[in-house]
């Protein structure tokens, strides 16, 4: 029996960046509860990654490795997690509030009749309760919520928790989880994956975001933002106005009706800072704003601002950042 069970995600033969955050926080909570940390890894050809979970602090690693887990599907993955819960009986189940975690967390909560605390930014355990802080209204307020079900499922917001540092000599016993998933169990079948231009990270997990607003004047000017994003190793975001105008795809939208993000660096270019946009990015660690209007609300949340025309400032910034890289 473990105090905490952590589901860690994999991508392209590696643990995802979020795994270190989940295991780091999972370890801290397991110690608080006076118990151990189990990790569960699900996928195809992922058994070799169990060692990495051990290095990141897991005391035991449960592995569900089968072809049926090659692509993510909530039906199959849920079966594996339910089996892992049976093997581990944790007080607390943690996973990332990623695209995958947002499907699996609720499904697991339903399957185990556990309270779900979703997309949280801090977790504490005391007097038999799990207490979290969780941004609500896209971050316009923070709720402190306590849950007391026998197991609690918490999904942790990416880029918020302190990642565990790998310890090279550390290892953990590995146990196989036979989820017993048959192809017929998969009710939602992925028939095809449509090609996408980029293999970029989802915005919510990106370290650096370069976002453009209506002040960019038109979609034809996005080339300079793409170059800036490339120079700084970031991904592109957009304001609602820009998405509504059809200049950029909706998956780039940051804000209350788009994605809530907390990257290390958020560069807001030609974005005035509507309340619903600020709600979606105000927890970024460092915010840079470039805008022609010195009174724009974005400057009230920005750490650093440049008052000026984006079309003029951005190429110079890109050039300076490129020089740094060389």
């Amino acid at each position: 029996m473990a105090a905490v069970l952590a589901f860690v995600e994999t991508s392209r033969g590696k643990l995802k960046k979020s795994a270190a955050e989940i295991l780091g926080e999972g370890k801290r909570l397991a110690q608080k509860l006076g118990g151990t940390l189990d990790a569960v890894v699900v996928g195809h050809g992922v058994t070799a990654l169990a060692g990495d979970a051990g290095k990141l602090g897991a005391d035991r690693v449960l592995v569900a490795d089968a072809e049926v887990f090659k692509a993510f599907g909530v039906d199959a993955y849920l079966k594996a997690l339910v089996k892992a819960v049976a093997a581990s009986s944790p007080r607390l189940f943690v996973m990332a509030a990623s695209v995958v975690g947002k499907d699996l967390g609720p499904a697991l909560a339903a399957a185990t009749q556990s309270a779900l605390l979703a997309d949280v930014t801090s977790v504490a355990v005391a007097d038999g309760k799990v207490r979290v802080e969780k941004p609500v209204y896209a971050g316009k307020a923070v709720a402190t919520i306590a849950a007391s079900s026998p197991m609690v499922v918490a999904t942790l917001r990416p880029n918020v928790f302190v990642p565990a540092q790998p310890e090279d000599g550390r290892s953990a016993p590995v146990e196989v989880v036979d989820a017993g998933v048959k192809p017929d169990d998969l009710r939602a079948v992925v028939k095809e994956v449509l090609a996408k231009a980029s293999e970029k990270l989802d915005l919510t997990e990106a370290d650096i975001i370069v976002s453009g607003g209506r002040g960019m004047k038109g979609p034809e000017n996005w080339g300079i933002l793409e170059k800036l994003a490339e120079a700084v190793g970031g991904v592109l975001g957009a304001s609602r106005a820009v998405v509504d105008a059809g200049w950029r795809p909706h998956e780039e939208q940051v804000g209350q009706t788009g994605k809530t993000v907390s990257p290390k660096l958020y560069i807001a270019v030609a974005i005035s800072g509507a309340i619903q946009h600020l709600a979606g990015m105000r927890t970024s660690k460092c915010i840079v704003a470039i805008n022609t209007d010195p009174e724009a609300p974005i400057f009230k949340v920005a750490d650093y601002g440049i008052v000026g025309d984006a079309l003029e400032v951005v190429p110079v910034l890109t050039e300076e950042l490129r020089k740094l890289r060389e």
Binding site: I287, P294, F299, K300, V301, A302, D303, Y304, G305, I306, V307, G308, D309, E312, V313, V316, L317, E320
Partner: peptide
Amino acid sequence: GKIVGEGKAAVP
């Protein structure tokens, strides 16, 4: 926060 400056001259 702080306004670093105006226009491209503020970039460095």
